[in-house]
Protein backbone atom coordinates (compact mmCIF):
# COMPACT_ATOMS: atom_id res chain seq x y z
CA UNK A 1 0.00 0.00 0.00
CA UNK A 2 1.07 3.54 -0.67
CA UNK A 3 1.67 5.48 2.49
CA UNK A 4 1.07 9.22 2.60
CA UNK A 5 4.48 9.71 4.21
CA UNK A 6 6.25 8.52 1.05
CA UNK A 7 4.61 11.25 -1.02
CA UNK A 8 5.71 13.81 1.50
CA UNK A 9 9.27 12.46 1.45
CA UNK A 10 9.46 12.65 -2.33
CA UNK A 11 7.98 16.14 -2.28
CA UNK A 12 10.48 17.17 0.35
CA UNK A 13 13.46 16.15 -1.74
CA UNK A 14 12.06 17.86 -4.82
CA UNK A 15 10.85 20.97 -3.01
CA UNK A 16 14.10 21.46 -1.15
CA UNK A 17 16.56 20.90 -3.90
CA UNK A 18 15.03 20.87 -7.40
CA UNK A 19 15.29 24.63 -7.99
CA UNK A 20 18.84 24.91 -6.73
CA UNK A 21 19.93 21.87 -8.73
CA UNK A 22 18.08 23.11 -11.80
CA UNK A 23 19.97 26.41 -11.46
CA UNK A 24 23.25 24.48 -11.44
CA UNK A 25 22.28 22.33 -14.43
CA UNK A 26 21.09 25.33 -16.43
CA UNK A 27 24.37 27.11 -15.85
CA UNK A 28 26.35 24.11 -17.06
CA UNK A 29 24.29 23.02 -20.08
CA UNK A 30 22.91 26.45 -21.00
CA UNK A 31 19.76 25.13 -22.64
CA UNK A 32 16.39 24.86 -20.91
CA UNK A 33 15.20 21.74 -22.75
CA UNK A 34 18.42 19.90 -22.11
CA UNK A 35 18.51 21.12 -18.52
CA UNK A 36 15.02 19.69 -17.97
CA UNK A 37 16.20 16.28 -19.22
CA UNK A 38 19.33 16.40 -17.12
CA UNK A 39 17.30 17.27 -14.01
CA UNK A 40 15.09 14.27 -14.67
CA UNK A 41 18.02 11.93 -15.32
CA UNK A 42 19.78 13.20 -12.23
CA UNK A 43 16.76 12.56 -10.01
CA UNK A 44 16.44 9.04 -11.41
CA UNK A 45 20.10 8.53 -10.64
CA UNK A 46 19.62 9.90 -7.13
CA UNK A 47 16.82 7.42 -6.63
CA UNK A 48 18.91 4.54 -8.01
CA UNK A 49 21.89 5.40 -5.83
CA UNK A 50 20.00 6.46 -2.72
CA UNK A 51 21.36 3.48 -0.82
CA UNK A 52 24.93 4.55 -1.49
CA UNK A 53 24.46 7.88 0.29
CA UNK A 54 26.34 7.75 3.58
CA UNK A 55 25.34 10.63 5.88
CA UNK A 56 28.46 10.15 7.97
CA UNK A 57 30.53 11.26 4.99
CA UNK A 58 28.87 14.56 4.35
CA UNK A 59 25.71 16.50 3.76
CA UNK A 60 22.96 15.29 1.47
CA UNK A 61 23.25 18.35 -0.73
CA UNK A 62 26.97 17.78 -1.34
CA UNK A 63 26.12 14.28 -2.53
CA UNK A 64 23.23 15.49 -4.73
CA UNK A 65 25.45 18.22 -6.13
CA UNK A 66 28.14 15.77 -7.28
CA UNK A 67 25.55 13.63 -9.08
CA UNK A 68 23.97 16.66 -10.75
CA UNK A 69 27.28 18.18 -11.81
CA UNK A 70 28.51 14.93 -13.33
CA UNK A 71 25.19 14.33 -15.07
CA UNK A 72 25.29 17.84 -16.56
CA UNK A 73 28.88 17.55 -17.75
CA UNK A 74 28.15 14.12 -19.26
CA UNK A 75 25.19 15.66 -21.08
CA UNK A 76 27.24 18.37 -22.76
CA UNK A 77 29.87 15.80 -23.64
CA UNK A 78 27.23 13.72 -25.44
CA UNK A 79 25.85 16.66 -27.42
CA UNK A 80 29.33 17.57 -28.58
CA UNK A 81 29.30 15.39 -31.69
CA UNK A 82 32.18 17.01 -33.54
CA UNK A 83 34.41 14.09 -32.62
CA UNK A 84 37.09 16.23 -31.03
CA UNK A 85 38.30 15.47 -27.53
CA UNK A 86 36.00 17.21 -25.13
CA UNK A 87 37.48 20.20 -23.34
CA UNK A 88 35.38 20.98 -20.31
CA UNK A 89 36.59 24.52 -19.85
CA UNK A 90 35.63 25.91 -23.26
CA UNK A 91 32.40 24.01 -23.66
CA UNK A 92 31.19 25.00 -20.24
CA UNK A 93 32.22 28.59 -20.84
CA UNK A 94 30.03 28.75 -23.94
CA UNK A 95 27.15 27.01 -22.22
CA UNK A 96 27.48 29.31 -19.26
CA UNK A 97 27.26 32.42 -21.45
CA UNK A 98 23.90 31.40 -22.83
CA UNK A 99 22.61 30.66 -19.34
CA UNK A 100 23.29 34.24 -18.33
CA UNK A 101 20.26 35.34 -20.35
CA UNK A 102 17.90 33.27 -18.23
CA UNK A 103 16.27 34.94 -15.26
CA UNK A 104 18.26 33.63 -12.31
CA UNK A 105 16.28 35.69 -9.89
CA UNK A 106 15.27 33.46 -6.97
CA UNK A 107 16.80 34.00 -3.55
CA UNK A 108 17.37 37.75 -3.66
CA UNK A 109 18.35 37.74 0.01
CA UNK A 110 21.28 35.38 -0.37
CA UNK A 111 22.27 37.12 -3.59
CA UNK A 112 22.39 40.42 -1.74
CA UNK A 113 24.77 38.87 0.78
CA UNK A 114 26.85 37.37 -2.01
CA UNK A 115 27.16 40.81 -3.61
CA UNK A 116 29.62 41.58 -0.83
CA UNK A 117 31.84 38.78 -2.10
CA UNK A 118 34.81 39.88 -4.17
CA UNK A 119 33.91 39.45 -7.85
CA UNK A 120 36.94 37.27 -8.61
CA UNK A 121 36.22 35.13 -5.60
CA UNK A 122 32.61 34.68 -6.69
CA UNK A 123 33.80 33.77 -10.15
CA UNK A 124 36.18 31.17 -8.73
CA UNK A 125 33.53 29.51 -6.58
CA UNK A 126 31.10 29.60 -9.49
CA UNK A 127 33.60 27.83 -11.73
CA UNK A 128 34.92 25.30 -9.27
CA UNK A 129 31.69 24.49 -7.41
CA UNK A 130 28.75 25.19 -9.67
CA UNK A 131 30.33 24.56 -13.07
CA UNK A 132 32.61 21.76 -11.88
CA UNK A 133 35.84 23.10 -13.38
CA UNK A 134 39.00 21.33 -12.28
CA UNK A 135 42.01 23.32 -11.08
CA UNK A 136 43.88 22.90 -14.40
CA UNK A 137 40.78 24.06 -16.28
CA UNK A 138 40.43 27.16 -14.12
CA UNK A 139 44.17 27.75 -14.42
CA UNK A 140 43.86 27.68 -18.21
CA UNK A 141 40.73 29.80 -18.42
CA UNK A 142 41.79 32.46 -15.96
CA UNK A 143 45.43 32.35 -17.00
CA UNK A 144 46.93 31.84 -13.57
CA UNK A 145 49.24 29.14 -12.19
CA UNK A 146 47.54 26.15 -10.52
CA UNK A 147 49.15 27.07 -7.17
CA UNK A 148 47.54 30.51 -7.38
CA UNK A 149 44.17 28.94 -8.29
CA UNK A 150 44.31 26.84 -5.13
CA UNK A 151 45.28 29.75 -2.87
CA UNK A 152 42.64 32.04 -4.39
CA UNK A 153 39.89 29.42 -4.03
CA UNK A 154 40.89 29.05 -0.42
CA UNK A 155 40.70 32.83 0.15
CA UNK A 156 37.35 32.83 -1.65
CA UNK A 157 36.01 30.19 0.73
CA UNK A 158 37.30 32.13 3.74
CA UNK A 159 35.62 35.29 2.45
CA UNK A 160 32.41 33.37 1.76
CA UNK A 161 32.46 32.12 5.36
CA UNK A 162 33.02 35.58 6.76
CA UNK A 163 30.19 37.21 4.80
CA UNK A 164 27.74 34.50 5.82
CA UNK A 165 28.84 34.79 9.43
CA UNK A 166 28.83 38.59 9.60
CA UNK A 167 26.19 39.27 6.99
CA UNK A 168 23.46 37.19 8.59
Amino acid sequence: MFAAGDVRAMDLLYDNYADTLYGVILRIVGDEDQAKDVLQDAFVKVWKRSKSYDPSKGRLFTWLMSIVRNQSIDAIRKTNRSGKIYGTANDVAIANTSADNIDLSLNHDIKKVLDQLDEHHRDLIMHSYILGYTHPEISEKMEMPIGTVKTRIRSAMIELRSIFRDGH
Partner: peptide, 25 residues
Protein backbone atom coordinates in the same frame (compact mmCIF):
# COMPACT_ATOMS: atom_id res chain seq x y z
CA UNK B 1 30.45 24.71 7.67
CA UNK B 2 32.09 24.72 4.23
CA UNK B 3 29.34 22.50 2.86
CA UNK B 4 26.62 24.79 4.20
CA UNK B 5 28.37 27.88 2.80
CA UNK B 6 28.48 26.29 -0.63
CA UNK B 7 24.86 25.16 -0.35
CA UNK B 8 23.88 28.76 0.30
CA UNK B 9 26.03 29.88 -2.59
CA UNK B 10 24.28 27.42 -4.93
CA UNK B 11 20.87 28.35 -3.55
CA UNK B 12 21.48 31.97 -4.54
CA UNK B 13 21.57 30.82 -8.15
CA UNK B 14 18.48 28.64 -7.97
CA UNK B 15 16.09 28.76 -10.92
CA UNK B 16 12.45 27.72 -10.73
CA UNK B 17 12.35 24.26 -12.22
CA UNK B 18 9.82 23.71 -15.07
CA UNK B 19 6.32 23.03 -13.75
CA UNK B 20 6.06 19.64 -15.47
CA UNK B 21 9.39 18.42 -14.15
CA UNK B 22 8.10 17.06 -10.88
CA UNK B 23 5.50 14.93 -12.60
CA UNK B 24 7.94 13.74 -15.30
CA UNK B 25 10.51 12.81 -12.69
Amino acid sequence: TSEIDLESFAAAYAVKSPSKSRENI
